[in-house]
Write a protein that binds this DNA or RNA. Structure first.
Lengths: 208, 208
DNA sequence: GACGCATCCTTACACTGATAAGATGATCGA
DNA sequence: TCGATCATCTTATCAGTGTAAGGATGCGTC
């Protein structure tokens, strides 16, 4: 309780006690660490984030019920970011735009490894032949393109199978690259050939 | 230091002080927990394993330099298990055997989620156009089949692209199912259609 | 029979996510 | 302008983690 000590304390705390935008600051720092780490998203430490933001760990709990909720928020942000890039690519339209969506997906994964992993480990979507996507979402754009390509005679099962096939291809390639199963550089160089853009196959077969 | 207490202690410890096959017991218990948990492999606790085996945590360190090494051993076991199943499927031979390898891969992932994740997060293989696989390994079998299918005129780059394309498809489907992006049941029902077995495509195009 | 060494134990440390209870300060009604 | 309210942040604490250091145990070998 010495004067100058408490004075210093008050001075430093007046600047930081009510942080203002803590929630956003935590999310920003989380994204930054996720980007810097390159590692498993679970390795991301809530306390580390709080420390870097200049706040005690329990303060975070006033903005997120628990760590999972924080990660979910980061995943939401990542999903939105991916969706925007996908929408941008889709604007090109037609087969070219469709191919560009595939490239964009894989490149997003390479550019944001931690975030990409987080998205798919924290956002179960459970698409099935009977579920329908939100209009304008990446999934909707994919389904829409495939519906048009397959023609009106295709059943829901056929459409579902085609969607999952295309998605599996680009998602699998992304994961294999991130997990270093496949040489990063070679795969990126041969991206179009792997996805069969310019060949026949990123699009589904037009008819049997 | 009461007599019967120390007696009990000695009695119980004489049975377990030198465990005998601790290393194997740890691996077995690790596999068991991995199977039971269904969760992220990193959630697996070294201390929990030690507890279940009836041994103190640091005892594990006499058999594995650190936790990562333990996980690596589990991954090795998993990889061997997957390879055996793949080899079994390949015995069928021809296009049918090739298709069966794809089904087997996906079904292995569904049956062993934790182990499957562990394999690909702890065993970088870095295949590229210039690397070559160990004869008899799943990768070798895949490359061999594709080489024969594409014919002698195909370049290493073309072969690599075809291998990665097929692998991406089955690996991506596996991951999407495990991460619950795609409805498990629907996907398994439509497995052949997604992989385009019986259609045209699990095999690569025969010619342009 | 004593020594040596692999194997295991206890203890301890620095981290993690999470809870509880108290301090702080902005905001709004009297 | 004062005082109460309430969101926000604090410190203290707990159970759990991976791992390091040093001591106990008991098997195999000279």
């Amino acid at each position: 309780m010495i004067d100058h000590l408490s004075a210093v304390k008050i001075e430093s705390s007046t600047r930081s006690y009510h942080h203002g935008g803590l929630r956003q600051a935590v999310i920003d720092e989380g994204l930054r660490l996720l980007d810097a780490n390159q590692k498993e998203p679970d390795a991301l430490s809530l306390r580390q984030i709080a420390r870097n933001v200049g706040v005690s760990a329990p303060a975070v709990y006033h903005h997120f019920p628990d760590k999972q909720a924080l990660l979910k928020s980061l995943a939401d942000y990542g999903m939105q970011m991916l969706a925007e890039q996908q929408a941008e690519a889709a604007k090109i339209g037609g087969e070219t735009g469709f191919a560009e969506m595939g490239r964009t997906y894989v490149r997003f994964a390479i550019a944001n490894p931690g975030l990409f992993r987080l998205i798919f480990s924290h956002m179960p979507m459970r698409i099935s032949p009977s579920t329908s996507a939100l209009k304008g979402s990446p999934e909707w754009m994919l389904r829409d393109y495939i519906k048009r390509t397959l023609g009106p005679t295709a059943t829901a099962r056929e459409q579902f199978a085609a969607v999952v096939r295309v998605w599996s291809l680009i998602h699998g390639l992304s994961m294999l690259i991130l997990d270093e199963q496949v040489d990063h550089q070679s795969a990126e160089e041969l991206l179009d050939e792997i996805l069969e853009v310019g060949g026949l196959r990123l699009k589904v077969r037009t008819q049997t």
